[in-house]
Design a protein around this nucleic acid. Structure first.
Length: 421
DNA sequence: TCTGGGGTCCTAGGACCC
DNA sequence: TCTGGGGTCCTAGGACCC
């Protein structure tokens, strides 16, 4: 019988900040998104104050002043580093692991003898001891149930952070306690429609007629219901599949207006996207570039345009990507709007070095692969942006608002250790 | 004044073909 | 001029996730 554990880091970004700032323990803390835009991670105390996921920072200022809420700018280099440590520790405790996101992983427990709940407790204590991050663990025969078990482990402290949901009777008791919107794969829209149909708990979804679910929603809602009932549909996935699209998009710290400003931004996004693309050893055949004003701006005109630019030949060369992106930008740019965001999305990937050569197609750049490999190596060693397109402004990448960044933090693990010692 | 970024999957509908 | 059904492929948009 299949058996999964879902290990999930508790309030991951906040826990990461607390690791190096003990004074943040026991007080309400949030970590903000890029540009200090909104709260993306909340401590239990912040949740108790009513801070919502994704809530804009400007709406939290009152809590900052009156309730002592502390807001930190995000430090993704730090979180990525800690995530790697958590995952390495977890991977020693099960034969197979699927890293599902920066802060959670499914572990394959099939065939493991002994007390699985005890194993879950060991996962918790080892990650806490070796990395310092608290995790919750849910154990169940399907991924969807393991997710729900993990939700229960977080919700009820008396569980000690581990919930074993192997027993079917226990499954049904928990399903009856969970609102249908808590189920993995059931979001806001679908749970609202389910509620109208009289389905408010996870148990009601698990028991509902499959055909109706499929016809009224889609195949995934049906599968989710069957997974809640113990039928296996979602398997553990090995190694990360190469991405099917790579996006690099940002909101601007301040509104932009001129073509030149947008060219600088788009050049930066195309450059970064190219690095990611080469990281998965693929070439892309098209890219999309978009620019838009803020949907929240009341004044000024709303403007949002995107265009898809095919590349003359499959490429991962920064020069080709930047040229295509700038060409697309030229086509959709118009002076006037207050531009708030832009992005570049790469798509239509093919394996590097394995695409069919069209005799009449333009010739790819000779030596491109070696040049880009050298650029990537230098940037990896000396820091991102050491070598970059000339169009990029010197401060590219740092135009982001990060006013709440802890001054002691660096993105270098070695220096962090020195700070701590 | 101030509202994130990066993904995946599914479906509906149109174009096109036989 | 009128009439049909089915298959495939593509795209845009919606919904979800963290």
């Amino acid at each position: 019988m299949a058996m999964f554990a879902l290990a999930d880091c508790k309030n991951f970004y906040v826990s990461s900040e607390r690791l190096f700032r003990p004074e943040l323990h026991g007080v309400p803390v949030v970590v903000l998104s890029n540009n200090d835009g909104c709260a993306v991670s909340r401590s239990d105390e912040a949740k108790a104050l009513g801070v919502k996921m994704g809530q804009p920072y400007f709406q939290l200022l009152d809590l900052v002043e009156r309730q002592g809420l502390i807001a930190c700018s995000s430090n993704y280099a730090l979180y990525a580093d800690l995530s790697g440590r958590v995952m390495r520790t977890l991977s020693t405790m099960a034969p197979r692991i699927e890293v599902y996101s920066i802060d959670e992983a499914f572990l394959d427990l099939q065939g493991i003898q002994g007390d699985l709940e005890q194993l879950g407790r060991e996962m918790r204590s080892r990650v806490l001891r070796e990395v310092g991050i608290p995790v919750g663990v849910g154990i169940a025969p399907t991924k969807t149930l393991a997710k729900l078990a993990n939700w229960a482990a977080k919700k009820w402290p008396a569980t000690g952070g581990v919930v074993d949901l192997r027993d079917p009777a226990r499954q049904r008791r928990l399903l009856a306690l969970a609102e249908v919107g808590e189920v993995w794969g059931i979001g806001r829209k679908i749970s609202a429609r389910l509620n109208v149909m009289g389905i408010t708990t996870a148990l009601q979804l698990a028991d509902f007629d499959r055909k109706t679910l499929r016809s009224m929603f889609n195949v995934n809602v049906e599968r989710t219901a069957r997974e809640l009932a113990g039928e296996l549909f979602f398997a553990l996935e090995d190694g990360p599949e190469p991405k099917q699209m790579i996006a690099c998009t940002r909101s601007f710290g301040e509104r932009k207006h001129t073509l030149q400003e947008l060219q600088e931004a788009v050049t930066g996004y195309a450059t970064r996207a190219g690095e990611k693309l080469r990281g998965q050893r693929q070439l892309c055949q098209a890219l999309q570039v978009f620019i838009r004003s803020s949907p929240f701006d009341q004044r000024g005109e709303a403007y949002s345009r995107a265009t898809c630019v095919p590349l003359p030949f499959p490429s991962a060369d920064t020069r080709d990507l930047v040229a295509a992106a700038l060409g697309g930008l030229q086509a959709i740019y118009r002076p006037g709007p207050d531009y708030a965001k832009a992005g570049v999305i790469l798509m239509d990937f093919v394996e590097s070095g394995r695409f069919t050569q069209d005799l009449f197609a333009p010739t790819p750049r000779p030596g491109s692969e070696r040049l880009m490999a050298a650029v990537d190596a230098i940037n990896a060693k000396q820091g991102r942006g050491t070598i970059k397109p000339a169009r990029l402004a010197a401060d590219q990448g740092f135009s982001m608002k990060r006013e709440r960044l802890s001054p002691r933090f660096t993105t270098s693990w070695g220096e962090l250790l020195q700070v701590k010692c």
